[in-house]
Design a protein around this nucleic acid. Structure first.
Length: 420
RNA sequence: GUGGGCGUAGCUCAGCUGGUAGAGCACUCGGUUGUGGUCCGAGAUGUCGCGGGUUCGAGCCCCGUCGUUCACCCCA
């Protein structure tokens, strides 16, 4: 094999590509039904948009971006996440000056130059939404509910929702001071100290027992929330309870993107190994303004399609429905091929899936193929049929055939197949 | 970026203490005239990831490289 896909990319090909579509559509359906509208975005942006938007100190920006120079000498980066690009587009086209909240969704590939691992790819797929222009805690609850609804639509049960509040900038500043002095008193190795310097919250997420132990008495951001932030968070929790959505408050939750404030959440799946986050998001108070838009808050999420598929497979809930063709036409000879071509062309306008047997295979093999593609009906078109104008329509399931005149075939099939 | 495992036909894998490759599934064709799902028969397919080394000889040993996988890190 001479050529291989670039390292660490996820590819979906038949038959699994069908499951991929199923996951994407299942996640998208609740979103569309909530009135979110499509935002079709470029997969690359000016590098500066990301360094400014998601934060230069984040791992995503500092060591995981695919950045290159285009022919005009501009620094371009393949999008590592969706929010910043979506907001750029919202601002650029004035959506934040229209009806608020502006509610958009997107779906597509994202890129991060990381070491590949189970559930972690260099090109991966996400479904995301952004709702910009209101601080209403009911919106927070709806956004979380939409992700939840998507996972439920897939049939997932072994996942949990963790939420927390990162408060506003003042509460974070106060907490940071105390946290830093707490960490300063700890005995830590150089690498860990360096991480703490970039973002002290990171230490809450450390997987080592010793560090967890040390951090168990660290000051929690949740205890520093301003009255306003606390009230907002309490309302969000209340709405989630009313919705019947189970969650746990995780005051040690850490997100890798700098823009998050207030409500922050994460969906974690139990069967996925190290890369267990299947989706997450949160509120971002200052981001719109920072990117040059209106000074309004927004909230959104990103759901990993790859990981949701992995989770569905791990739980054994992947939709089993195989690829199905309604009618399989087997032409014998050139004149029959011509008829088969126009017949299928017409039938497809009725929303039917119609396939033709190509390559002059022996009839036996062609029938075998009809079987393989799960055809509901098979139709043999030979010289005899063309001469008599009568064809036998064979129902594959039962093997029964019915005689139909070629001239009334389309109306017969459309009434038969569409009513069945 | 760091560390460990693995890399043989499309897929899942076997290959004994080194002697120039096999199974099952899938695929193609056939089991007499134009009909599938079972059964039977026949057939095609691999530079044993790639490069180098040791050896009379390497799929089996050594080094490198690429890919993959698991974990760290990070996150979808």
């Amino acid at each position: 094999m001479k050529y291989q896909a670039p390292k660490g990319v996820s590819e979906y090909f038949p038959p699994r590509s069908r499951s991929f579509e199923w996951v994407r559509e299942s996640l998208l359906t609740p979103i569309r039904r909530a009135g979110y509208q499509l935002l079709e975005l470029p997969v690359f942006e000016d590098t500066e948009l990301f360094t400014r938007g998601v934060g230069a100190s984040t791992d995503v920006v500092s060591k995981e971006m695919y950045t290159f120079e285009d022919r005009g000498g501009r620094s371009i980066t393949l999008r590592p996440e969706g929010t910043v690009g979506a907001l750029r587009s919202i601002i650029e086209h004035g959506l934040d000056r229209g009806t608020l909240p502006a509610k958009v969704f997107y779906s597509g590939p994202f890129f991060r130059a990381e070491r590949p691992q189970a559930g972690r790819y260099r090109q991966f797929y996400q479904v995301g939404i952004e709702a910009v222009g209101t601080e209403d805690p009911a919106l927070d609850a709806e956004v979380i509910a939409l992700a939840h609804a998507g996972y439920r639509a897939l049939g997932l049960t072994q996942f949990r929702l963790e939420i927390t509040s990162l408060g506003d900038s003042q509460t974070r500043a106060l907490h940071r001071v105390d946290l830093l002095s707490f960490i300063d008193a700890l005995e830590l190795d150089a690498a860990t100290k360096a991480r703490a310097e970039l973002n002290p919250l990171r230490l809450f997420d450390d997987k080592r027992e010793e560090v967890r132990e040390l951090m168990s008495t660290a000051p929690l951001l949740l205890d520093y929330l301003s009255d306003e932030s606390r009230s907002h968070f309490d309302q969000v929790k209340g709405f989630l309870k009313d919705l019947g959505i189970k969650f746990t408050v995780n005051p040690r939750m850490v997100r890798g993107l700098d823009y998050y404030t207030g409500t922050t959440f994460e969906f974690v799946h139990d069967l996925l190994g190290a890369q267990s986050g299947i989706g997450g998001g949160g509120r971002y108070d200052g981001l719109m303004e920072q990117l040059g838009g209106q000074s309004v808050s927004g909230i959104g999420f990103g759901l990993g399609i790859d990981r949701a598929l992995l989770a569905a497979e791990a739980e054994g809930v992947v939709e089993k429905e195989a690829f199905v063709t309604d009618l399989f036409i087997i032409p014998l000879g050139a004149p029959a091929k011509s008829v088969a071509l126009s017949l299928s062309d017409e039938l497809r306008t009725y929303d039917l899936t119609v396939e033709i047997s190509f390559g002059d295979r022996p009839l036996k093999s062609a029938m075998k193929n009809a079987d393989k593609c799960g055809a509901g009906y098979a139709l043999i078109l030979g010289d005899a049929e063309l001469a008599s104008g009568i064809v036998e329509l064979k129902e594959m399931r039962t093997g029964a055939t019915t005689s139909v005149s070629l001239s009334s075939l389309v109306s017969t099939i459309t009434t038969e197949l569409l009513t069945w």
